[in-house]
């Protein structure tokens, strides 16, 4: 449950706006996070999230939305703070060929970002996807309980 990179973020956060030149320099450097590393990370738990900040203190509204949705469903998951590592931040984007953070994985499969998770939550698909990997959503449990209470 404890996110691997939690709290390391503060060392890197520092100085605010990152200038494009810095980004160019960073990307010219060899990325130390390999595809194999990321494959291992995304399969380490049934649900894995790459986000900005950590679940207790998300540093982006989109990441926060993902945290809130997963909390509603009572899901425990691995979280990785991309602000703590430029290599992970760029590495995961290359890995999924997806340009933005947060990124959500279920059973090692890339599911999408905030918008997709939100729409899956609204449509009920998220409950189904969680069920497939053996996670029973708290929302489903509540609904079943209410249903049972009604029948009594």
């Amino acid at each position: 449950m404890l996110p691997t990179f939690r709290y390391v973020a503060k060392q890197v956060i520092g100085t605010g706006y990152r200038f494009p030149i810095a980004r160019t320099l960073c990307s010219a450097k060899e990325n130390t996070v390999t595809k194999e590393d990321l494959e291992k990370l995304v399969k380490n738990n049934k649900v894995v999230v790459f986000m900005k900040g950590d679940p207790e203190q998300p540093r982006c509204g989109f990441s926060n939305a993902v945290v809130q949705i997963l909390r509603m469903h009572g899901v425990t998951y691995d979280s990785h703070d991309v602000l703590s590592s430029d290599d992970i931040r760029q590495g995961i984007k290359d890995f999924t060929n997806w340009p933005t953070i947060p990124q959500v994985f279920i059973n090692g499969e890339f599911v999408g970002g905030c918008d997709i998770l939100l729409q899956m939550h609204q449509s009920g698909d998220l409950i189904e996807e969680l069920k497939k990997v053996g996670i029973k959503s708290v929302l489903l449990e509540q609904a079943e309980k209410e249903e049972a209470d009604k029948k009594k």
């Binding site: 706006y17 900005k52 982006c60 509204g61």
Partner: peptide
């Protein structure tokens, strides 16, 4: 509208 910013941009 999108969720509120929490200050993660560029940091």
């Amino acid at each position: 509208p999108s969720p509120n910013c929490r200050g993660g941009f560029g940091k």
